[in-house]
Write a protein that binds this DNA or RNA. Structure first.
Lengths: 299, 299
DNA sequence: AGTTCCATATAAATTTCGTTTATATTATAG
DNA sequence: CTATAATATAAACGAAATTTATATGGAACT
């Protein structure tokens, strides 16, 4: 099997028509080129050049037969470098974003639209799944950037980036509970009402538990729902008091379909984090998206 | 500029999906492969593989983008080896034969027909020119094998191969000189008749001069002609006595249009030599032709 | 013809770079 | 929790490419 570097020398010599000129172009000495050519000829078992007094000329039965193929091969390999370098320098390729459906809808939607407007060349794949799955997708290179509800346990292989957005969990109710409007409430008061919460093993649910626990209380859901949308629907219909991020109910709060309870102390805000695979590369398209989302130029 | 050997490692690893297996295939150690991959990744500034617990997988934003191009390039370069190796092992390509028109006609014609019949795949270029020009064409790689009227001065850059055919110069005449039939003649007798010879600066003419000189005589042409064909025509028409290789007049001698004079001593025979460029390669097509012409298996 | 110039070829010393050996690390499977 | 199977790392080694110096050879010029 022939050392591929020899083909580069061959090609340069053929193009220059001279060992000396090729040596200059390759930034190596003339004897090095001379030896390389000879080595290639030996290994291929054929003479490739005619040695002329004025230089080197492709031989008809050797070099000339292979020149075009060698040229094409070297162009391809050089193109490979260009392709990867372009990926780092301009907005091309594909960007795969992973997040929960909710995060897409309430936090990323505007950003994604803006990004697409600025970089229409970049194909965007939106992968909607729960946080643990997103982490898995990041680590298996099925996703370039993920957005996760924090906190989440440390994971080797994931780089977590400071919070991208804050989620402020609040308790909300509909007209059926209008007597609670403007009342100052505590967690203990809430215990008397039917509560709607997201199902177990979610960050949101863990946040509620932790909140109540830190006050020495326990909050039990009357109803567990699978999605915020469904919770909002049920709470609006008067089924009980819901606990959800204010950001996810902005329209209904503004329109008065729901109102926010004045509970003291307020639940600590949670944050949405940006996660990257630890070993992943950082194409331009990804960097640009991160900048746009974090609002900051970013390494 | 990236060391092209690294692409071979990259490709093997990608194909094997494993550093270890690639190392076996490449007959080098696993760490060598590991380092080569890392080096390529560094030089390209991109991660190319996802390191899995079970092996290596092309990364979506790196290796996968370049794999096809690298594969194509390596196939081309591997094809280059095949192409040249095939040239040495089977009858393909082009064979460029140089000789004088006469040699083609009277010595090589049959051989070329036979060769073409046996190796129809080989394209044959016949280059007809005088011997010094043929030597030039051999040295400048415009011709693969040449046939020359010997003797010819030694030439660096040309390998002369023992004689391929003998040319026996004889004196011939037509009916106008029928009184000479069966007479025993010497060079002195010839001086009395009008002689037709080929023009100066030809091997044939030099042979006549040398022959006469060696006997202490001088033969001067009454007519100098530019080609054997023309000489035969004029001699047949009774213009004088011609001197030419018997081999070039076989038909007219057989048909009785010309007869051969019985001159003593006979002119020494000249030979036709096969010449190759000293540094030229020896593709199968060429070797086969030489074998056919010399009638012998041949290095 | 002789000399100079310009090209490639060759030889030996050196340095670089790839390779190996040995070991660490990590994750999955049993 | 150990065993296995993969990749990663580090240091020592060795082969191979490069350089320096020189040889060789032909063409052009005087």
């Amino acid at each position: 099997m022939v050392n591929l570097e020899l083909y580069r020398v061959f090609y340069t010599v053929a193009r220059c028509g001279s060992l000396t000129k090729a040596a200059e172009e390759l930034y190596i000495s003339q004897p090095a080129v001379s030896q390389a050519v000879k080595q290639l000829e030996n290994q291929l078992g054929t003479s490739l050049f005619n040695r002329m007094h004025k230089g080197m000329e492709l031989s008809k039965q050797g070099g000339e037969l292979i020149y075009a193929d060698v040229e094409r091969a070297l162009q391809l390999l050089s193109g490979v470098e260009d392709k990867l370098s372009e990926l780092k320098q301009s907005a091309t390729g594909t960007l795969r974003i992973g997040a929960s459906e909710t995060i897409f809808q309430y936090i990323l939607a505007d950003k994604i639209v803006a990004y697409n407007k600025q970089y229409p060349q970049v194909k965007i794949d939106l992968i909607s799944d729960v946080s643990p799955k997103i982490i898995e997708l990041l680590k298996t290179d099925h996703c370039d950037v993920g957005f996760l509800n924090l906190p989440i346990e440390e994971d080797e292989g994931i780089r977590l980036n400071a919070s991208v957005a804050l989620l402020n969990d609040v308790f909300v109710a509909g007209e059926a509970f209008s007597e609670l409007k403007d009342k100052e409430l505590t967690v203990w008061d809430l215990q008397k009402y039917p509560l709607l919460m997201l199902e177990q093993n979610t960050v949101a649910r863990a946040a509620i538990n932790h909140y109540a626990e830190s006050l020495g209380a326990v909050l039990r859901p009357a109803v567990e729902v699978g999605s915020w949308d469904f919770m909002k629907r049920l709470v609006t219909d008067g089924m009980g008091i819901g606990c959800l991020p204010r950001e996810y109910a902005q329209r209904r709060l503004r329109d008065g379909e729901l109102f926010e309870l004045n509970v003291t102390p307020a639940m600590p805000s949670r944050s949405v984090g940006l996660a990257l695979a630890k070993n992943a590369s950082m194409p331009f398209s990804l960097r640009a998206f991160i900048n746009l989302v974090t609002g900051e130029p970013h390494a």
